[in-house]
């Protein structure tokens, strides 16, 4: 891999790079005939989650991902990629359709976290994330999740219960942003670089812990330096992974996903006589 010597803090910076390709770019590069589906049918449409149906190498797939946007107007419109409950409920709607129409699901994860706002709480941010986790865990179609940038907290995980969880080389995935982590644990957000070191949030760390299944290499200097190279690698990887999953029955896919997440943290517990 081309970016072997970067520190965790440097990878966090790359994961947040304003030019880094996001969900909209991956859809444009990899999916043809894409139709964006909007709205949660309850309250509104949350642009910070982009979703719809399109063709991946000729077969229909449901694609759902966080969207930060590239310009200031887009950042505002998409709330810097921090979803509200409407975003997660839109995702649930699309996931139910994927199940109904037997379409594989591809998710792209890139958010600093779910939006911690007054309206988001009033409309049940916690419930929306919980229901998305439960639904995604039970689907009987293939689900591939790719952490592409920042994977922050429950707002990221809500789209991350895949049969296969892949991660771009310079993406990060953590229980909280390094700033939030430092602020909660040490009451000092400025110690975020230190937090990056202890949090084990890089793709290599997460691969060794069994939280992700594979790392997708990025071009030298990061994905934004040569996105087309990345699209090529991502395309090849998704074809291979999807091909393997599509051989399995629906029941086996649901069972396999359950088994995978059921095992999370088993090495982190032990029995002790007290």
């Amino acid at each position: 891999m081309a970016n072997r010597d970067l520190t965790p803090a440097e990878r966090v910076a790359l994961a947040r790079h304003p030019g880094r390709p996001g969900t909209a770019d991956f859809i444009a590069a990899l999916i043809s005939d894409f139709f964006e589906q909007r709205g949660d049918r309850f309250f509104g449409d949350d642009g910070s989650i982009l979703g719809g149906v399109g063709l991946f190498h000729g077969r229909p797939v449901t694609v759902i991902g966080h969207r930060k946007g590239k310009t200031l107007e887009e950042h505002m419109a998409y709330n810097f990629g921090m979803p509200s409950p409407e975003g997660y409920r839109k995702a649930q709607r699309l996931l139910r359709q994927a199940e109904k129409f037997r379409r594989p699901v591809i998710t792209f994860i890139d958010t600093s976290g779910a939006y911690p706002g007054l309206e988001a709480e009033a409309r049940g941010q916690g419930e929306a994330i919980a229901e998305t986790l439960a639904l995604l865990s039970s689907l009987t179609v293939p689900v591939i999740s790719v952490v592409t940038g920042e994977g922050g907290s429950g707002g990221a995980l809500a789209l991350g219960v895949g049969n296969r969880v892949l991660m771009l080389e310079n993406a990060v995935y953590s229980v909280l942003s390094p700033e939030g982590f430092a602020s909660i644990l040490w009451k000092d957000a400025s110690r975020s670089a230190e937090a990056c070191e202890v949090m084990k949030l890089t793709a290599a760390d997460l691969l060794s812990m069994g939280v992700i299944d594979a790392v997708i290499p990025e071009p030298e200097g990061g994905a934004h330096e040569n996105p087309h190279v990345l699209y090529q690698v991502l395309d090849t990887t998704l074809v291979r992974e999807l091909g393997a999953l599509e051989k399995q029955s629906g029941a086996a896919l649901a069972a396999g996903r359950y088994k995978k997440f059921r095992a999370m943290g088993l090495n982190a517990v032990r029995k002790e006589r007290t």
Partner: peptide, 26 residues
């Protein structure tokens, strides 16, 4: 909320418990 000292493994318990409950419910 999360147990910060267990990092991502704390986060993954959300998926684990939600998945177990979904099975139980079904």
């Amino acid at each position: 909320g999360a147990r910060m000292q267990e990092g991502i493994l704390s986060l993954m318990q959300m998926a684990k418990t939600a998945a177990a409950l979904e099975r139980f419910s079904r």
